[in-house]
């Protein structure tokens, strides 16, 4: 008890009860801010605190929120264990991304509402102070680079997730050896990985460096929307423009697709494009897999 208020022999109002409801009833909500920020409470207790604070007088609510904010900053500074996640984790996350983040549907926040903290990179933010050439230049550049290409995106994928493909060669020899698909799938050096397709289903990619080819097989992937097709791309390692590898309509989805000449590719990406396909990929990808060739 050396570190509590009671140790000084005083009966302070900050002294806690055993349970949260008693603390709340006694007006100690603000004193619970640190425990709350630390997640050291049950779900029911969190709910009780949220309910109480939601209905508390403005000043009390503000004090509570401020103490929670400070505690969270303190924790983020103090507990900084680091560990390298698996190399393919980012690709798995990307494969699950919904099409658009929240703001795409919602109106942009008013820059004014963000106060002085509004980052200069936001086009709607107030103009950079006069004479701040660097900032202004950066802002212009940011606007230019906003429609960032799939190229950048997938290089990001590849950099973060060095090798997504792993595992062992596929088992039994089942089919015609002259079938180019099976030549790839059953090659000695074949490896495969399955990634989720945004919108449903999976894409299994089998890659054979010795054949300089890969096979993509879609499973349970819904047909593209009316007037659209899936388009496959190889993203070159050297950062040059993605190269279309062909289109997949509803019918083609059920068949494996063979992609050759993968030696210089950093990643495979699949996008949804207007019927007839596009010259350059339209973001976001519905599936992406870094290649380690």
């Amino acid at each position: 008890m050396t570190d509590t208020n009671d140790s000084r022999g005083r009966q302070l109002p900050r002294a806690f009860a055993a349970d949260i409801p008693t603390d709340l009833a006694a007006g100690r909500a603000v004193e619970l801010a640190e425990i709350y920020a630390l997640d050291a409470i049950s779900d029911a207790e969190r709910e009780a605190i949220d309910t109480y604070v939601g209905g508390a007088p403005e000043a009390e609510r503000a004090s509570f929120n401020e103490r929670v904010r400070q505690a969270r900053e303190t924790l983020a500074m103090s507990f900084t264990a680091e560990e390298e996640p698996p190399a393919d984790l980012f690709a798995r996350i990307v494969a699950q991304l919904p099409e658009q983040p929240a703001r795409a549907q919602a109106p942009r926040r008013e820059a004014a509402a963000e106060g002085p903290a509004a980052p200069a990179a936001v086009p709607t933010a107030e103009p950079a102070p006069a004479g701040d050439e660097l900032s202004a230049a950066r802002q212009r550049r940011d606007v230019r680079r906003r429609p960032a290409g799939l190229r950048n995106w997938l290089i990001g994928v590849a950099a973060a997730a060095v090798i997504a493909l792993g595992g062992v060669g596929i088992g039994a020899y089942v089919a015609n050896q002259n079938d180019p698909f099976n030549q790839v799938i059953e090659a000695q050096d074949a490896r495969q990985a399955t990634v989720d397709v945004n919108g449903g289903g999976t894409a299994t990619v089998s890659i054979s460096p010795s054949h300089d080819a890969l096979v993509v097989r879609m499973k349970d992937v819904p047909p593209p929307p009316a007037g659209k097709v899936y388009q496959m791309w190889l993203i070159p390692k050297d950062g040059s423009t993605p190269v279309s590898q062909g289109l997949m309509d509803a019918e083609a989805l059920s068949k494996p697709a063979l992609v050759k000449g993968i030696g210089s590719a950093a990643a495979l990406g699949i996008t949804v494009e207007p019927a007839g396909g596009s010259a350059t990929p339209t973001l976001p990808t519905v599936a992406a897999a870094p290649l380690n060739t």
């Binding site: 990307v94 991304l97 703001r103 795409a104 906003r146 960032a148 990001g156 973001l283």
Partner: peptide, 8 residues
């Protein structure tokens, strides 16, 4: 704004 490169 949906910038995937920034997400990466």
């Amino acid at each position: 704004d949906g910038d995937q490169a920034s997400f990466a």
